[in-house]
Design a protein around this nucleic acid. Structure first.
Lengths: 112, 112
DNA sequence: TCCACATACCTTGTATAACAAGATATTAAT
DNA sequence: ATTAATATCTTGTTATACAAGGTATGTGGA
């Protein structure tokens, strides 16, 4: 029952959402996540995730020069990635509703 | 990026919340979760989870006769379990806020 | 020039937890 | 006796976040 477990299956959707706002590279995403209120997310988490999503053709990358340091890999969504993001948002909202219902003890009607 | 991954680290808190409302036994919890809007959660998920939480002294069980079938194990929260539930709710609300901020593109101020 | 440092990416191994599938036992009804 | 619903539990698999560490590039200061 840790914060790391709670992120499972959620982080990938969050990265898609971040990329959707604006092209972004891995190293920057950690701090971006932080801005949104997440605790520090390891690069050992982010990079494998990005590579997996690229393999699944949800995102594609372009290498560009950095102002300071090695080249960056900027990611953007594919059409498939945009669909995956919409799907994630839907599933998140379902979960959100369910968990909040439990916490606030609001049992839904069966027929809904 | 499946529904099953999204439940990780969340199901245990949800079960604590359910038990907190009213003593409950494993078999019943599946349908209770369903009432709250969750998809079917396997018994192969629920029972090991209950046993783990009992081992961690978050819940304790009492065997009682069933109206039809073998004895039920009714669970209730310990003091430690109540604290764990409060802790879960806090962490859930943090996550909830963060994910919704990302989805709705509301970047928080750093100083907050 | 040389070195420290921030930037930027990647790999390996580990731990956790949800799940499918199936086993077992009890009670009621046919 | 047989079937079905109830109720619990076990085994093996899979997915994924993370710690720890490695590699490479560019800037600025000594």
């Amino acid at each position: 029952m840790s914060q790391t477990q709670m992120l499972k299956g959620i982080l990938d959707g969050c990265l898609l959402a971040i990329i959707n706002v604006k092209e972004c590279y891995g190293y920057e995403m950690a701090s971006r996540l932080n801005d949104y209120g997440f605790d520090y997310v390891s690069e050992g988490t982010i990079y494998p995730l990005l590579m997996r999503m690229q393999r699944e053709e949800l995102i594609i990358s372009t290498r560009r020069k950095s102002t300071a340091g090695p080249k960056r890999k900027y990611y953007r969504l594919t059409d498939k990635g945009e669909k995956a993001l919409q799907d994630f948002i839907y599933r998140w909202e379902q979960l959100d509703k369910s968990v909040n219902a439990i916490i606030h003890r609001e049992i839904r009607e069966k027929g809904e």
